[in-house]
Amino acid sequence: MIPRLLTAKIRSALEKRPAVALLGPRQVGKTTLAREIADDRPSVYLDLERPADLARLDDPDLYFSENADKLIVLDEVQRMPGLFQTLRSRIDLNRREGRRTGQFLLLGSASNELLNQSAESLAGRISYLELPPLNLLEVGPDHLNQLWVGGGFPDAYLDEADSFEWRMDFIRTYLERDIPALGSRIPAETLRRFWTMLAHNQSQLFNASQIGGALEVKGQTASRYLDLLVDLLLVRRLQPWASNVGKRLVKSPKTYIRDSGLTHALLGLHDLDDILGHPVVGGSWEGFVIENLIAAAPAGAEAFFYRTSAGAEIDLLLKFDKELWAIEVKRTTAPTLKKGFHVACEDVNPTAKWLVYAGEETYPVRNDVTVIPLAELMNRLSDS
């Protein structure tokens, strides 16, 4: 099993809070990671999609009482919204009895649903962590192209021969089973077309009216489709930097399919040659870099992009602690920066300026910009 960077953060969070919620799309490795953490302490694991495990929670308060000295792992917990009030009562009782941390590890694949259900009931009692697909620090920089082409879902990454078919099955299962199970009535073929449009427009501004027109639905409906895929942690909606710099700023978000392997599968791109010959290559690389950098960023980091109507632009702004890093992304081994990046940096005054490229050396260029490989910048972020 590939060690995950989040493991230490989960263990640390369990030492500080009674409950920890681990969010991530299906098949990203949440259950495997949770079982690894549970193996080093007394624990029980319940999958709330299994009837036998659901039956154990006919009387959840009794079950929690009988296992009060164990870590209780609840998988797909958003499927039992009525459980959160019981969790709160049990946590508060355990507190009165002297146990204050490490009681529940909650796994969920629909972020907003889980956040909304737990926010009020477990306020002050829960920490939230997100497990993304495998990143470059986890697999090693020597496997950069393999990770970019096939994406970071463990089953897709570890079996290159079957990777494309696995990703196609993953997409089909989400569309035909998982999304309808959440109560969505969007036709699977309509949502597939929408998802594919996002792949074609990887790293572009989201134009709800334009996409809605292509789907023959209203712009508001297209925005609702986007909300769903964002909630399922399959798509990132990157918001524009909104600080008042006295400029006319672009207000629409940019969208990225969060796993590059899914982007390529939706577009029918099987290998590196297919990707390099496709117009999406730049957008795919940009999304891949951004997801990896956000995965390596310190806890609580905020991500934005910057663009003005005059053409000043920064692909990624990362804000954390007292830092504001401006990051430009280029899929080339001989990168150059356009004037718009320098103008944008004058507007936002970042504490550091980086150009991530496809080469292997780190070196400075004019205006205090450092050209740097992706893995090296990820290391610097993870050490921050």
Rank of each mutant, 00 (worst) to 15 (best):
P3A: 13
L6Q: 06
S12E: 13
A13Y: 05
E15Y: 02
V20E: 08
R26D: 12
R35N: 08
A38V: 10
A38S: 13
D39N: 09
P42I: 11
D47G: 09
E49T: 14
R50D: 14
L54Y: 04
R56W: 03
L57Y: 06
D58R: 12
D58N: 09
P60R: 08
D61Q: 14
F64M: 11
N67I: 05
L71T: 09
L74Y: 14
Q78D: 11
Q78T: 12
Q78W: 14
P81E: 08
G82V: 10
L83I: 13
Q85D: 11
L87G: 08
I91N: 04
T101R: 14
G108R: 10
S109C: 13
S111L: 13
L114N: 12
S118R: 10
E120A: 14
S121A: 15
G124Y: 09
R125Q: 11
I126P: 09
Y128I: 06
Y128L: 15
L131K: 04
N135F: 06
V139S: 12
H143W: 09
L144G: 02
Q146M: 08
L158N: 12
S163C: 04
F164R: 14
P180Y: 10
S184M: 03
I186N: 06
I186E: 09
A188R: 15
T190G: 03
T190M: 15
R192Y: 15
F194S: 11
W195K: 08
Q202G: 08
S203M: 04
L205C: 02
F206N: 00
A214G: 11
L215Q: 08
T221A: 12
V230H: 04
D231E: 13
D231N: 14
L232E: 10
L238P: 00
A242M: 03
S243R: 07
V245L: 12
R248L: 07
P253Y: 02
G261T: 06
T263P: 02
I275M: 07
G277Y: 03
V281W: 01
W285F: 15
E286T: 05
I290W: 01
A296E: 06
A297R: 03
G300R: 05
F304I: 02
A310W: 00
A310P: 01
G311P: 03
E313D: 05
E313K: 02
I314K: 01
R331P: 00
T332R: 00
T333H: 07
T336W: 06
K338G: 15
V343A: 09
E346Q: 05
V348L: 00
V348Y: 00
T351C: 03
K353A: 07
G359H: 06
Y363M: 03
V365K: 07
N367I: 03
V369R: 08
